[in-house]
Nucleic acid binder design. Structure first.
Lengths: 259, 259
DNA sequence: TATCATTTGTTCGTATGTATC
DNA sequence: CGATACATACGAACAAATGAT
């Protein structure tokens, strides 16, 4: 980790890259502090703002955590994927069971809303009324927190009285209820990630630079009519989601270059 | 959007919050530029560094994109999940087909490596030798780019000669080969996300503040012996992954509080 | 084509606040 | 209490990209 920075490519980025490489190579181990800002200024012959920009880069890359009065510490990334949430369902007859178990931090809140945004596209309903059930959950082992939200369109709730009465029933119960109501259920889950919103940082305990995983599961009647939506949000630093891939038995259509 | 900032809570954060709120409320619509840094300095009576810190916050929140010489523009978040990659397999007899098709940007590169890190855990092999096949792919419609990596442990390749000869065959071919070799294949995919590394920014075209989705698919023989690993990386700003959830037929064990 | 005003990007310097040890 | 560390905020200058003149 010597002290030579050429131009161009901003000096703060070069410094960030060098530090990132030192972290990746293990030269700077998790838990140990970076050299202080003053040291880095002297070592590399750059000014304070340049050093601070470099360290800020490392923070947004999720490589270090800075603590006022102490230092900037290399984050332990091996301990990163700690919690694995299996997004699998088990079924026996008309009963369902979810693979991953949570404990609720607060009791669920039920509200009446309208379906907008991503939910509208997935439920194929725009601006229609719906029940929304919000839960704040935590993993019983690690204490990691999750936000869970269920959206039940009003037309679905009206067709199945038990849903309207207890929209906050457990999801496995709801699946059973819908099955008894004659629906042949199928599910599709879609996963993406984004930077946390300000309120999510606190609620989900998202560490600096870590994204939020957003997973949305749609329950269909048959293969195509959306009945309800679940949305799960979690800090990606603590969580990975797993899916069992089951090949569909379907006629082969030719396609080129797929991987 | 008036100009009153109290202390404490850093002024740059207050300014960032006010701008974020203006974006959330629709006062600042997607595509329109924020007031210029000079304007914001005057409006709020703060210095240029303070304004720049605030805008930097918005960038890492993924709310705006800044372009030198032009301005900082509110990002269109509705157009965010543009590309949907279905992580589903289809099967007919011993033939397989992937749902999502890509076109290769470069021809695959084959290297000999050792299995470490997340791959070691998933393949249940530590430091063992393996083929690694790297591909840079793109979506034929949108042009979005993906990095794909296949890891084939050497013991698997040696047991199935076709793999050792052409480790860079298409995955569906490899699945077929393994099936013909007598393996009953199953798959498990795990998804997480993280901030992009410096080289990924360029290779995957990751916009500022957007995380990278990392999805790893393990192919098992039977239910438990890992044969090979695929790793797919993509910018979460452009991509969502979809999974078909197929309930497993299994005896019901009781569990509390699952959602 | 060349110039110029505007806008963001980079880098320096300096001062002060605040948490930690 | 004092030394050290990061956090915030100011001012200033120049670079680089853009778009219009």
């Amino acid at each position: 980790m010597a002290g030579n920075l050429k131009r161009p490519s901003p000096m703060y980025k070069q410094l960030a890259d060098q530090l990132a490489e030192a972290i990746a190579s293990g030269e700077l181990e998790p838990g140990v502090p970076l050299p202080s800002e003053t040291k880095l200024m002297q070592e590399y012959g750059v000014s304070r703002p340049t050093v601070r920009s470099a360290v800020a880069e490392l923070r947004t890359m999720g490589l270090v955590d800075s603590e006022q009065g102490r230092g900037s510490f290399v984050r332990n990334q091996d301990a990163a994927p700690s919690v694995t949430l299996a997004r699998t369902l088990r079924r026996s007859g008309k009963r369902f069971e979810a693979e991953s178990a949570f404990s609720a931090i607060e009791s669920p809140t039920i509200t009446r809303t309208h379906i907008t945004g991503a939910a509208a596209a997935l439920l194929e309903r725009d601006e229609e009324a719906a029940f929304a059930v919000e839960r704040l959950l935590s993993d019983p082992v690690t204490g990691a927190r999750y936000a869970h939200r269920t959206v039940i369109p009003l037309d679905v709730a009206e067709a199945v009285p038990q849903l309207a009465e207890r929209p906050d029933a457990e999801l496995t119960e709801i699946y059973a209820t819908l099955t008894e109501a004659g629906h042949a259920l199928t599910w599709q889950e879609s996963v993406t990630a984004r930077a946390p919103l300000p309120d999510e940082r606190a609620a989900l305990g998202v560490s600096d630079g870590a994204p939020v995983l957003v997973s949305r599961r749609v329950t269909y009647s048959g293969d195509d009519r959306p009945l309800l939506l679940e949305e799960l949000r979690a800090s990606a630093a603590h969580t990975q989601l797993t899916f069992r891939i089951t090949p569909e038995k379907a006629p082969t259509r030719r396609r080129a270059g797929s991987v």
